[in-house]
Design a protein around this nucleic acid. Structure first.
Lengths: 217, 217
DNA sequence: AGATGTGAAAGTTTTCACAGCC
DNA sequence: GGCTGTGAAAACTTTCACATCT
């Protein structure tokens, strides 16, 4: 029935499944579009249709966090969008470091979507002497040896790891040492990090392989 | 010489869950490393340890496709690797087109991992006149209007869609018209394609948002 | 002995269905 | 009438445990 807004001191996030979080991100994106189109309300069925899922899935996902809708009317677009911003932690800026100044790092540096969501690349690191010193936009590529100092000075909270796979673990170790809270790993290798550091992996090959798996056989 | 079972005329792939397919890709990557290290056999527990899962999960995943192991001994690395190559459709070359010649397209074009897995970028498309005609390695960027002709000529089977979100659907429609079998979509928008076209999505923002979700709470 | 393959149990996620409110 | 919120059922995925084979 009623959920008070008084929450327990422990993390809600632990009880929420990964698929639910991914769907929240998609709802957020759709709501951003609807908001731009001046839509005032949206129903769970509408949200479901866009995301290719069921209306009850949408309602269930949202119900973990509160009662955002109104029976008979649906959800207020602006209100729900703001709620999701907060839930996803997007109602603030995040200082990010790119670790690895290769092509993928370059693409991520200029990825508009990140900036729009509040992710600010504050530093870029590499070990290649020919890259250190390069200017990327308004940021100068630093040597990895300066990681700790710059992370502290720039108050960097998240590292995006885009190094070759064979050095990924040792670079991750150095990132962990700086006290950074989260790592987004693009290197195709499973990393070991302490539980206190949040780790998410993006493997570009896996998506392609899942495609060829389905196209084969 | 294990042979995957010869049971049904319909697609095995339909019965295999997405998480299983992703794990197969990871096993394959680990086996590639073990093979390079001249390891002859590997147990499900060893494979599980590297992937951070349970041994029975590994055995269950593999058992959907055949009996690759030997009781008491484990799996032959080379043999299992070859089997997974075949299952994932990596025992051949795939002709790929990059649709979108921006930074992300550029990063993917030079992504070594793709080439190593047998994915060959045979064409690159854009609509920006300043990009059409550029030379990327040994490929000249073509205008999107030439998509159908070049796809046919180069026997392209997979399109990697890396356009801005707001044109992603119309570009996807044009890709579908060419008869391409699969699309890997990097644009942050849900695409509508016929069931006959395989679609996989990679959303770079979602991984970051899942990180901030866990860091917030 | 050592490790797979698998049916059954446990756990998790999705869907159903309907009470309850607009 | 319309649509949410949610407990219960169904579906799906993972883990267990042990028979089975080398």
């Amino acid at each position: 029935m009623e959920k008070t807004s008084d929450k327990s001191p422990e993390k809600i996030t632990d009880k929420i499944s990964a698929p639910t979080v991914m769907r929240l991100s998609e709802y957020y994106r759709v709501l951003t579009e609807l908001d731009a189109e001046r839509q005032l309300t949206v129903s769970s069925s509408r949200l479901a249709e866009v995301g290719g899922i069921t209306p009850s899935q949408v309602r269930k996902d949202l119900s973990y966090f509160g009662n955002f809708g109104r029976r008979g009317l649906g959800y207020n677009v602006t209100e729900l969008r703001r709620a999701l911003r907060e839930i996803l932690g997007l109602n603030r800026r995040w200082n990010v470091a790119l670790v690895g100044a290769g092509n993928l790092g370059h693409a991520l540096h200029s990825y508009q979507e990140f900036r729009q969501q509040g992710f600010y690349v504050r530093a870029i690191f590499d070990v290649d002497p020919s890259k250190v010193g390069e200017k990327w936009g308004d940021i100068v590529v630093s040597h990895l040896d300066d990681l700790a100092g710059i992370v502290a000075k720039e108050k960097i909270e998240i590292a995006i790891l885009v190094t070759p796979a064979d050095v990924a673990q040792e670079v991750a170790d150095r990132i962990v040492e700086t006290g950074i809270e989260g790592i987004l790993n693009f290197a195709p290798r499973k990393l070991e990090v302490p539980d206190s550091v949040m780790l998410r992996n993006v493997n570009l090959s896996i998506a392609l392989e899942s495609l060829t798996f389905s196209l084969t056989s």
